[in-house]
Deep mutational scan, measured.
Amino acid sequence: TIDDAFRAIERAIQAENEGRYREALKHFLDGGEMIVTAAEKEASQKVRNLLLHKGKEVLEWAEHLAEWILE
């Protein structure tokens, strides 16, 4: 659900702030994927587009974090 997705993102932010970057990455990926999944089930085109945009933002952040971890 969207609530689960945002809880995962909150955990990711907390982990990132505490320097637990790999854990943060996992939570960002989980949250982003949950948002995209919820968007695919959404009946309203406007809400679907907003959710897809937010999911994409979260997944892009996860990608940047992963690249930073690997440096």
Rank of each mutant, 00 (worst) to 15 (best):
H27I: 05
D3L: 15
A38I: 12
V58P: 00
R20Y: 06
E18R: 09
Y21D: 02
E18D: 14
W61R: 07
L52T: 04
H53M: 15
A38D: 04
K54H: 06
A62C: 05
A5F: 09
V58Q: 01
L52K: 07
G55T: 05
G19D: 02
D4C: 11
K26P: 02
Q45R: 09
E71F: 10
I13C: 14
E42N: 05
E63K: 14
T1N: 05
L50F: 14
G55I: 07
L70H: 08
L25Q: 02
K54S: 04
A5H: 01
W61S: 01
K26A: 08
R22G: 08
N49C: 14
E40V: 13
K41Q: 08
K54Q: 06
H64G: 05
N17P: 01
E16A: 15
L59A: 05
G32L: 15
L29Q: 08
A24G: 02
E33I: 13
I69T: 01
E67T: 11
N17H: 09
R22S: 11
T37H: 11
A43P: 13
E63Q: 14
E10N: 07
K54R: 07
S44E: 14
I69N: 01
E23A: 06
G19V: 02
E63R: 15
K41Y: 09
A12Q: 01
W68F: 12
L59S: 03
K26V: 06
L29G: 01
G55L: 15
R7N: 10
G19W: 03
G32W: 14
E42D: 02
A62D: 00
R7W: 04
H53C: 13
E67S: 08
R22A: 09
E40W: 15
Q45K: 11
F28S: 01
K54C: 15
A38Y: 11
L70Y: 09
R22I: 06
R7Q: 10
L51K: 00
I13E: 03
E10M: 12
E16K: 11
F28G: 00
K41G: 07
E18F: 05
G55F: 14
L70R: 11
L59G: 02
E63H: 10
E71Y: 11
L65S: 01
V36R: 08
A24M: 03
F28C: 06
F28P: 00
A62K: 00
L70S: 06
L51Y: 04
R48E: 07
H64F: 07
E33Y: 15
E16W: 15
E10L: 10
D4W: 07
Q45W: 08
A15W: 04
T37L: 14
E10H: 07
Y21V: 12
A39S: 06
L65R: 00
E33P: 04
Q45V: 08
G55C: 11
R20T: 02
G31W: 09
E71T: 12
D30F: 12
E18W: 06
E18S: 07
R48N: 04
A12F: 08
E23T: 04
F28Y: 15
N17V: 12
H27Y: 13
E23F: 02
L51C: 06
R7I: 09
N17C: 14
I13F: 07
L52E: 04
L65E: 00
T1S: 12
D30Q: 13
T37C: 11
Y21C: 12
V47P: 01
A62V: 07
F28W: 12
I2F: 05
V36G: 04
V36C: 13
K56Y: 11
R48G: 06
F6A: 02
A43R: 13
E71D: 09
G19S: 04
H27V: 03
I2K: 03
I35F: 15
E67G: 08
N49W: 08
A38W: 11
D30V: 12
K54T: 10
L50V: 07
E18M: 07
E10F: 12
I69K: 00
E10A: 09
H27W: 14
F28H: 00
E42P: 02
K26M: 07
K46V: 14
W68R: 07
A39Y: 07
E40Q: 11
K54V: 15
R48H: 09
M34F: 02
E10R: 13
E71L: 07
G32R: 05
L29H: 04
R48L: 08
K46I: 14
A62P: 01
R11V: 08
A66L: 12
T1F: 13
E42S: 11
F6V: 06
E57A: 10
A5W: 08
L52Q: 04
G19I: 03
I13Y: 07
L50N: 10
E42Q: 09
L29D: 02
A15Y: 11
E60R: 13
E63W: 14
I13G: 02
S44P: 00
W68M: 06
Y21T: 01
V58A: 07
R11N: 08
V58F: 08
E40S: 13
D3T: 12
Q14A: 11
V47L: 10
L25D: 02
E40T: 12
K41D: 06
H64T: 09
I9N: 00
I13H: 04
H53V: 11
R7M: 06
V58N: 00
H64P: 01
H27L: 15
R22F: 13
A5P: 03
M34P: 00
A38V: 09
T37M: 13
E33W: 14
R20Q: 06
E63P: 00
E60I: 07
H27P: 00
D4Y: 07
E33F: 14
I2Q: 03
L51T: 00
R11L: 11
L29I: 08
K46H: 14
L52I: 09
V47N: 04
V36P: 01
D4E: 15
L65M: 06
E23N: 03
Q45M: 09
K26N: 03
L25H: 04
T37A: 14
S44M: 06
E40R: 12
L65F: 03
K41N: 12
L59F: 09
E71K: 09
G19N: 04
G31K: 05
D4S: 08
A39G: 04
Y21I: 06
I9S: 02
Y21W: 04
M34N: 02
A24P: 03
A5N: 01
K26L: 08
I9M: 02
A8C: 12
E57Q: 13
L52N: 03
T1D: 07
A66F: 11
R20G: 03
I35S: 01
E67P: 01
D30W: 11
K54A: 12
A24F: 03
R7Y: 05
A38L: 15
I69L: 12
I35H: 03
V36Y: 09
R7A: 10
R20P: 01
M34T: 03
I13K: 06
E16R: 11
E71N: 10
A66G: 07
L50M: 09
N49I: 11
W61Y: 15
T1A: 10
H27Q: 07
E42H: 08
I35D: 01
R7L: 13
K41M: 08
R20C: 09
I9C: 06
F6N: 04
S44H: 04
L65W: 04
V58H: 00
D4K: 09
A39V: 12
K46P: 08
V47Y: 08
Q14D: 05
E16G: 11
H27F: 13
A8G: 00
E71R: 07
A15D: 01
T1L: 15
L51A: 01
E57N: 06
A24K: 00
E18P: 03
R11Q: 11
I69Y: 05
R7S: 04
R11P: 00
R22H: 11
I2M: 06
E60H: 12
E33H: 14
I2L: 14
A5I: 10
A15E: 04
D30L: 15
G32H: 15
G31M: 05
